[in-house]
Simulated scan of single mutants.
Amino acid sequence: MGSSNKHGILRPLLLLLPLLACALVLSYTQEWQQQQPLDVAPPPQCDISAGSWVYDRSYPLYRASDCPLVEQGFRCQDNGRPDSSYTKWRWKPSQCHIPSFHAARMLQLLRGRRIAFVGDSMGRTQWESLVCMLLTAVADKSSVWEVNNRTITKREPYLAFHFAMHKVTVEYHRSPFLVQESPPPKHAPRRVRSILRLDQLEASRTRWADADVLVFNSGHWWNPSKTRQVGCYFYVGNTLRLGMKLEAAYQAALNTWARWVDSLVDTNKTRVLFRSLEPSHWDWPRKRCSFQRQPNASSLAAPSSIPQLALNRILHRVVQGMNKSVGVLNITTLSHSRSDAHVGRWSPGQPPLDCSHWCLPGVPDTWNQLLYATLLSNKNNRVATSSN
């Protein structure tokens, strides 16, 4: 009888042992994760652009109301958007971990240096996003100012915010095509109102040539509505190329940019990145934005349907043929699944539907998180490894 009671008491305890073991392992794992450094970079072989969107209640990384620098056109909630769910999605690579964005660490990485975004209005959105993200680590907001006391507008060719405590300058240089736009040559047909000199880089290059980090983008303006339909044609050498295809012109422009980097940029000092094209979600047959309420997982699974991939392939070919080390920040596919996060009709006044630009906070913050991870992984560059 005593033996039977003894086994009866032990049996429940034995059943509990596996559960106790699992609890201990889970507790140890959580403690280990909490002890991991904030800036563990992903391994170089990891494709951080492949993954999925995960709903995260701790997002967004900042609020537009806390960042007065965001231009009114990107403040979707201030402009009447009733929901905030589009701000709650975090990008999670499928092959590795990327560090959470740490504004203080990013400022430390860039201490005493310049980071310049060169490109179109999408580059300006990413620039505004980064300024707002970095501001979250600055207690005294008066120590951050626009160097020329200018207001952020789409017409400003040059904007820059200086973070005085860290001596960091975050710049934006407007250059939608990266190459020089000029008046038409003499005796050009009347339909030619301007030209793109595909063999001459943008004249403002002297302003950003010696930045410590250069982030380029171009592609949004490489379409008929921004070129031929408004009388803008291509020019190479002394020849007007009226019939030149957009893809060929884009490649010629990127080749000009690549030659400039290869010949004049010291990549031992300057980290050079080119961000891939950002997708639009304009539904041409229905003439409306193709909006969804949340990230579209099917577009991640079938990226071949993205129109911008043709220009992306040109970008990758050009970069692969360069002599200098240049990185490509791939954001096209992950952004293609986020039709929920465009400005749409939530902008001041009554402008046309905007299926190209993004609300802030929003998707451009993820581009900057990938930028942060990329700079951390660049262990051979002093920008990424400085401890000053």
Rank of each mutant, 00 (worst) to 15 (best):
S325C: 05
H316C: 01
I306N: 09
Q308K: 04
V318E: 08
S290Y: 11
L300K: 12
G327S: 07
M322L: 09
P303C: 11
L311F: 00
Q320M: 03
S305L: 12
H316L: 09
A302V: 02
S290P: 02
S304L: 09
V326L: 02
N323D: 15
A297T: 11
R293I: 13
Q294E: 13
S299C: 03
V318S: 12
I306F: 12
L309K: 05
S290M: 00
N312A: 02
I306R: 08
H316N: 01
Q292R: 12
V319L: 05
K324P: 05
V319M: 11
P303Y: 07
Q292I: 06
L300E: 04
A310L: 09
Q294H: 13
N312G: 06
Q308A: 13
V319G: 00
Q292T: 12
G321P: 03
Q320E: 10
L300C: 15
R293E: 14
L309F: 11
K324F: 03
S298A: 15
A301V: 03
S305H: 14
I314T: 04
R317G: 06
Q308R: 14
A310K: 04
A301G: 13
I314P: 04
V319T: 09
I306V: 12
L300Y: 01
A301D: 07
S304E: 11
L315A: 00
V326Y: 01
P303F: 02
R317S: 01
N312Q: 05
P303T: 02
I314F: 09
V318D: 02
Q320W: 05
V319Y: 05
G327E: 08
A310T: 04
S298V: 13
R317F: 08
V326K: 10
S304I: 10
A302K: 12
N296T: 08
A310C: 05
S305C: 09
S304A: 15
A301I: 04
I306Q: 06
L315I: 04
Q320G: 02
L315Q: 10
Q292E: 08
S304R: 13
S305V: 13
H316P: 00
